[in-house]
Amino acid sequence: MFACARRAGVGGTAGSRIGVRSAGGMRKGFIVVVCRGCAEPPCARVCPTDALALREGGGVRFHPELCVGCGNCRDACPFGAVSWDPVETKPLVCVYCGVCASYCPYDVLAFDEVGRNVDASE
């Protein structure tokens, strides 16, 4: 999360497009919430202004100038992978840059092209 926020040259957690939460207390470990780059992304389907456009190879591309901040995309993602910027009232969607993976010391996160690595369990 910190690595994602740091792309914009800031600290803290609010700018992150990837989430980490406990699976019900630290006893149960943690869950990483990351956009899986769906082939048919529900976030784009529910966008009333086409601010979320389909991206070649999966996932979406965000056009902030078209966004009206309705929040449908955030609610539509079953993984909760659409983060929200409460100041701009706009979604923070993954741009598939892989910075998070490069700061993961234990290979929990890997940066890979969808469909290329058949062994990846996603």
Partner: peptide, 8 residues
């Protein structure tokens, strides 16, 4: 609990 950006 909280969530914010920290400027540098």
């Amino acid at each position: 609990a909280g969530n914010r950006m920290l400027p540098v």
